[in-house]
Design a binder for these strands. Structure first.
Lengths: 248, 248
DNA sequence: GCAAAAGTGTTAGCTGTACACCCATGA
DNA sequence: TCATGGGTGTACAGCTAACACTTTTGC
């Protein structure tokens, strides 16, 4: 990047008064519905201003004594009950004016959003019911206009999901403890699209990495030859951590 | 990841009072000294409590009306004068208690740090001199104990630099407009270590990507055959953006 | 037996690696 | 002319993509 010679002038600010912030955490929570082969995002409908009645990412403001990660888990736990998940920090959005509650003239409180990305197991995730259906899964390709800059955050999370899947074993955090190779393949297909790899090649590459244990137990899903159940072997994976491996 | 069945209980907080934040921006600013083949990080010596006399990452608190990115550029511009750089957001650190100025009992102001990662051209970067030598380049493998959690932030940035270099053309942001292929190679060697690739293979892979233009102009660096000067062709690179390409 | 699903094998072409080798210049 | 650094070529191993094939089940 080439910047003006005088970035000092350009980026100096007239006022030296510090901004006061509230910090929010917004979660992009994905799950994969393997029955219908679709990727879902958890949204909640706002019941207050600003953006009343808009759908938004589940979020919360950080409380006294609470860490960012804790706030992310709390938001998650308020919306769904789930035991197996992957969660990581995504990005922080802090432009002045991104929240209409900020008064543009008076330099009041600013709202910074630290976004988190989560992948949860769809089958076990129970939406904590409210009478009003204000929390619901949306297909990732049928997202309505969201409140605030949540479209941008969601898009950021969606890219992270697709990338992360290719070099990190997050899929095994949301698959059952024992799974068939075809279930892994379906998960990858659903997220990355049909055309990322042929099943037999995917299979041999994955097995060659050596961190999947064949339990030798067979399961039959309807007609056809029964499939072996595999387990993720975290000890065998450990040495591969931090290495630039590719799963697909 | 497997979490306790009751994450709701675990992560619920007694108080529902919101935390008040000041938001800081801390920059991990790298440069590569190609003369001595070493990676440098810009540090400044603190002249105030807390951590008086400790070295720290250059940082600042975000001002009213100022965006996070602007604050990052402002910090940079206060320390060094440089025209060519690459800058991106790194990670946000917001644990309660990460800044000793927070009063652990009274739940006062919290300090959140949004960290940024920058790569600048060493040869053109002039440290904006103060009488006291309070700003200085440090070799990345000889970093003293830093203030706050800046060791962790620096480590995070160092990993980002090594990864980013492999799939993104940030090197060309800090090389001269015209450069020899050997200069590119030296840069990669310095950051990734001697053993990442043999020169001739690096060379052919890089050229095959097709975004380097041979200007046909030759330069002689001492003895030996003169090298061709190349230019980065951003138009030719455009279609490769967002593709999972590897430079090494 | 036949369809369906799981799993194995084969091939052709490509890519990475490790070199050997040629080229152009300064001293 | 020789050392030095720039640049090209090659041969082999290993990988990928595409697809044919075998195995084991339910019906």
């Amino acid at each position: 990047m080439k910047v003006d010679s005088s970035i000092k002038q350009k980026y100096s600010h007239e006022t030296e008064e510090l901004a006061d912030f509230k910090v929010g955490v917004d979660n992009v929570i994905f799950s994969v519905d393997t029955t219908y082969n679709r990727v879902l995002v958890l949204l909640r409908k706002r019941a207050e201003e600003p953006f009343n009645n808009y759908w938004s990412l589940p979020g919360t403001l950080v409380r006294q004594g609470e860490s960012l990660t804790d706030a992310a888990y709390r938001t998650l736990a308020e919306k769904i009950q789930v035991d197996n998940l992957y969660l990581e920090q995504l990005y922080s959005f802090g432009e002045p004016g991104r929240d209409p509650r900020e008064n543009p003239d008076s330099f009041g409180i600013r709202y910074l959003s630290v976004s988190y990305f989560a992948l949860v197991r769809y089958e076990e995730a129970k939406i904590i019911a409210k009478s009003d259906k204000s929390t619901s899964w949306y297909k990732v390709d049928e997202i309505p206009n969201l409140a605030f800059d949540h479209d941008e955050i969601l898009n950021y999370g969606w890219n992270r999901l697709k990338n992360k899947l290719q070099y990190s074993p997050i899929a095994f955090d949301v698959l059952p403890t024992e799974f068939t190779l075809n279930e892994v393949y379906q998960l990858y297909c659903t997220i990355l699209g049909e055309h990322f790899s042929d099943y037999s090649n995917f299979r041999s590459r994955l097995l060659k990495l050596g961190f999947l244990l064949d339990t030798k137990v067979k399961v039959s899903r309807g007609a056809g030859r029964p499939a072996s159940l595999y387990k993720f072997d975290s000890e065998a994976f450990a040495p591969l951590k931090d290495k630039p491996l590719l799963f697909i």
